[in-house]
């Protein structure tokens, strides 16, 4: 099993983590980029790209989903959006963006990842808001709450578990999508795998695969814990049921 040994020696060589010349590389125009030969640098870049993508998606999808869910309109549209995004290959969007005016590199990847992060956040915030028990809503109106108060003080708190689940799904998915950046000359942890395949160092490929898999699993576990924390105990069973049917 020399591949495993190679992977082990790749992972245990300090230089592969810190880079031959530190974790940043100067660029020609006097700036700097993350070094391509450092796992730490690529990991930080990976996380920054993922956070950027999820943030963009959340800024757009959260208000939209919450609003549409509150007025209970556009359910079909949200379903269509999520179905189309499933059929659309990530690679297709990446290559389309890279070949367009956006150009190669991290910008194209962040935009593509944000587009794929959008549907889970949208559908979950929509469902969370729209599925609030009508009796609860009626009761809130009965005690004289305005529409805005009903939305912010009744529906939104009840929708929080599902919204958190949506953010978790899209974050994990984004962390899993960003490795494809390596195919369009972007950064992130996919670079390790791509370089390994290009140079036929399969130990490095295996090591890269393990790192990416661990990052995705860790993200899922950490966000799962966060999701549980923001879910009131009374709503946990409902949230679990919603996840199973999704």
């Amino acid at each position: 099993m020399s591949t495993i040994e190679d992977a082990w020696s790749y992972l245990t060589t300090a230089q592969n983590w810190t880079g031959a010349n530190g974790i940043t590389t100067p660029t020609f125009d006097g700036g700097w980029t993350w070094a391509n030969d450092s796992i730490i640098a690529l990991g930080i870049e990976h996380m920054l790209m993922s956070i950027a993508a999820v943030t963009i998606a959340a800024i757009l999808a959260l208000p939209l989903g919450v609003y549409l869910g509150h007025v209970r309109k556009g359910g079909t549209a949200t379903v269509i959006v999520s179905n189309v995004s499933r059929a659309m290959p990530t690679l297709a969007l990446l290559t389309l963006f890279a070949a367009s005016a956006i150009g190669f590199g991290n910008k194209a990847v962040i935009i593509a990842a944000a587009i794929f992060a959008f549907p889970p956040i949208l559908t979950n915030s929509f469902t969370g808001m729209a599925d609030v028990d009508p009796d609860v809503r009626d009761a809130a109106r009965g005690i004289g709450m305005t529409r805005f108060q009903i939305a912010t003080r009744v529906e939104l708190p009840l929708a929080v578990p599902l919204i958190a689940a949506g953010l978790r799904t899209s974050s994990v998915q984004t962390v899993a999508t960003v490795p494809l950046a390596a195919l369009v000359a972007g950064g992130g942890l996919g670079v390790i795998i791509n370089t390994g395949i290009a140079t036929q160092r399969y130990g490095q490929v295996l090591a890269g695969g393990i790192i990416v898999a661990l990052v995705a699993l860790t993200t899922d576990a950490v966000l799962g814990r966060l999701q549980r924390r923001v879910t009131p105990p009374q709503l946990r069973a409902a949230a679990a049921a919603a996840k199973a049917s999704a």
Partner: peptide
């Protein structure tokens, strides 16, 4: 949860 890119790798 394992990314496809990593799985192929």
């Amino acid at each position: 949860t394992i990314p496809s890119f990593a799985l192929f790798a």
